[in-house]
């Protein structure tokens, strides 16, 4: 455990050693708030809730998480620092966990910077704070799951562009599986049970349940196992 801290710290602060962090955080804020206002009708709905804000998060993460994760391993491979890291006294699992949690914290930081949205809703109306907290939790879990998948992909290549593109494609699949529009299409030729099964493999139904305030053990288990599986494969990919 103690070996995780230095790598975690280096990785998290690493985002701020280049303009990447600031560009990322600004884009995150502008896009998340912009989508809620201009497409979600945040004010027009006249509801004291953040539903129109959270509903876009899966699509936001589709582009932003691969952008934040593409460098995780690809950069180490290209720069030769992988050899340095893996000849220091730590296990591959520790390195994978350290990098994952650092990147996750970075994404959660971006998410927390949107808290003024919640305070605005609280000032203007009387929202259900439990649902808002649950929404943030769901979004953080969603970001973590997307990140674990993209971290795995970054470990498979030394090219960051390839890591980004493949990351977007992998997330697109995870989103489509549980996207209502796609599920409706499927229900034209598949039984209800089959469509339900496929939908539950995707991230959206689990995220939406938590974002609505339903913190279901199955959804938590879904995110937990998706993260664990992707990270286990990540370790295996690096442990040649």
């Amino acid at each position: 455990m103690s070996q995780i801290t230095p790598v975690f710290k280096r990785e998290f602060l690493g985002y701020f050693r280049s303009p990447v962090a600031y560009v990322f955080l600004i884009v995150f804020l502008v896009a998340s708030v912009g989508l809620a206002f201009f497409i979600g009708g945040f004010f027009r709905n006249n509801q004291a809730s953040l539903e129109s804000f959270f509903v876009f998060h899966p699509w936001l993460y589709l582009l932003l998480v691969p952008a934040a994760a593409m460098r995780l391993w690809a950069e180490e491979k290209r720069g030769g620092t992988l050899e340095l890291l893996f000849t220091l006294p730590l296990t591959t699992t520790q390195a994978v966990l350290a990098k994952f949690f650092a990147a996750w914290l970075f994404l959660v930081l971006g998410l927390l910077l949107t808290l003024p949205m919640a305070f605005t809703v609280g000032w203007l109306g009387d929202p259900d704070w439990g649902v808002i907290v649950s929404g943030y939790l769901g979004s953080a879990l969603l970001a973590g799951a997307c990140l674990a998948v993209c971290s795995l992909i970054s470990a498979l290549t030394k090219n960051q562009v390839i890591a980004f593109v493949l990351g977007v494609i992998a997330l697109l699949v995870l989103l489509f599986l549980g996207w209502s529009v796609f599920n409706q299409l499927l229900s034209g030729f598949l039984s209800v049970g089959a469509v339900d099964f496929i939908a539950n493999l995707g991230v959206i139904p689990h995220f939406e349940a938590i974002a609505k305030g339903i913190i279901d053990a199955r959804s938590l288990a879904y995110f937990g196992s998706l993260i664990a599986l992707a990270l286990a494969l990540n370790v295996a990919a690096l442990d040649r």
Binding site: L84, P89, L90
Partner: peptide, 17 residues
């Protein structure tokens, strides 16, 4: 690894630090 000090070829290091 704890007992070895290793200088890999071309001395890789994190350039932004």
């Amino acid at each position: 690894k704890a007992k070895i000090g290793y200088l890999p070829e071309s001395a890789p290091a994190y350039g932004e630090m």
